Simulated assay, not measured.
Amino acid sequence: MAAGRHPRDRPRPRLGPRDRPGHVPAGPLGGDRVPGLNGRVGAVAVPAYFHPAAVDWAALADARLGVVVLNVDSGAGTVRDRAFAEVASRASDAGVRLAGYVDTAYGGRPACEVEDELVRYRTWYGIRMAFLDQVSAEPGHVLRYRRITAGARGRGMTYIVLNHGTYPDAAYSALADLLVTFEGPWSAYRHLRVPAWARRLPAERFCHLVYAAPRPVLARALARAQRCNAGVVYVTDRTGANPWDGLPEYFSSELALVYAER
């Protein structure tokens, strides 16, 4: 997806761990425990799908953020983009954790293509965290994603996010450090049901991305994330084809609520 565009359409509601089964990372984002959400582990993850010239990038120079997803051109692109390289450098200097966006086409892309894109992110932008999008949730694709995530780690990725956009088969929890298990509007988030296996894992293993949430429901959305055992969240009031093309009007308030105890 190019900067400023939404990922390809998917069923709504939609928008990492080692490869050996049963591995559970020690803490969110490489072991950093971020208190928030009334004492529960809490961090904000931002899908920053907008151009480097956008003023919103200045607001992202905040080391408290769990992860900021960089998406150059529906992925890393084919040539180094100087504007994105400058943004990535400034963000890294500020202590922001950047993840490179790669579309996996629900398992349809060969693992070598995914690996090559991640190498470009590492080489051109110094990024060593992977945000793999459009990830299958089906049990039949687990082995395919085991190869993909193993290849990503072999190419230097130290942290992997799988964006299913829904709760996948439980076996995927052994493949990534963080699973995005909800991406959708507030109207759907209010009715989200969490499977039993997901409640047995630490909250920092799960991320929820919620859009079309007006300011009056911000606190309720964050509280619902806590009840749904999601320790990494992003809530925005933006809507439309790409609700991730800018920050919410209440972004500073969202950070204050999540990181109130820091």
Rank of each mutant, 00 (worst) to 15 (best):
V96W: 08
A152E: 07
R146C: 04
R5N: 08
N38F: 06
R155C: 12
R144W: 04
I160C: 05
E86G: 02
S74N: 14
R190C: 04
A213C: 15
R200D: 15
G4K: 15
D32I: 04
R128P: 00
D245C: 07
L175G: 09
V46K: 05
A83P: 02
T181S: 08
R20V: 10
T239Y: 04
A59K: 12
D245N: 15
L222Q: 03
Y167S: 07
C228H: 15
L179V: 01
V232Y: 02
P248D: 03
P214V: 03
S187T: 15
A43E: 14
A203R: 12
C207A: 15
N242D: 14
G77R: 03
D93P: 00
A150D: 13
L118N: 05
A203I: 01
A150M: 06
P28Y: 02
R18H: 12
S89T: 14
S92M: 13
D19I: 10
L70R: 03
R20F: 01
A76R: 03
A150L: 12
N38V: 00
N229Y: 05
E261H: 10
P243E: 05
N229E: 11
R10M: 09
Y211D: 11
W186H: 12
Y159P: 01
Y121C: 09
G66V: 08
A94V: 01
Y49K: 09
A94S: 15
G36W: 11
V119H: 09
L98Q: 05
P7R: 01
A196K: 10
D177C: 10
A48G: 04
V114H: 09
R128L: 01
G156T: 08
Y189R: 07
V135N: 03
C112Q: 13
G165I: 03
L175T: 11
L118K: 06
A43Q: 09
V194E: 06
M129G: 12
R90Q: 10
R238K: 14
A170S: 14
G165E: 00
H141F: 02
G4C: 08
R64E: 00
Y172W: 10
R82C: 00
D103P: 02
P28L: 07
G108M: 03
L257H: 05
S92D: 00
I148G: 04
Y250D: 04
A150Q: 13
T236Y: 08
I148K: 03
H191T: 09
R10W: 12
P47G: 08
V135W: 00
A152D: 09
A176Q: 12
P17S: 15
Y106G: 01
P216N: 11
P243G: 06
A111V: 15
G231D: 12
P52G: 04
P35N: 02
G140Q: 13
D19F: 07
G154Y: 07
L65N: 01
P52S: 08
P11K: 13
V72S: 12
D133C: 06
G151S: 14
V68S: 01
C228G: 02
T239L: 06
S74R: 15
W186L: 07
M157G: 08
P202L: 06
D116E: 14
R153M: 13
L192N: 13
L98H: 07
D19V: 12
L178S: 10
R200P: 04
H6E: 15
A230E: 05
Y49T: 11
V258R: 00
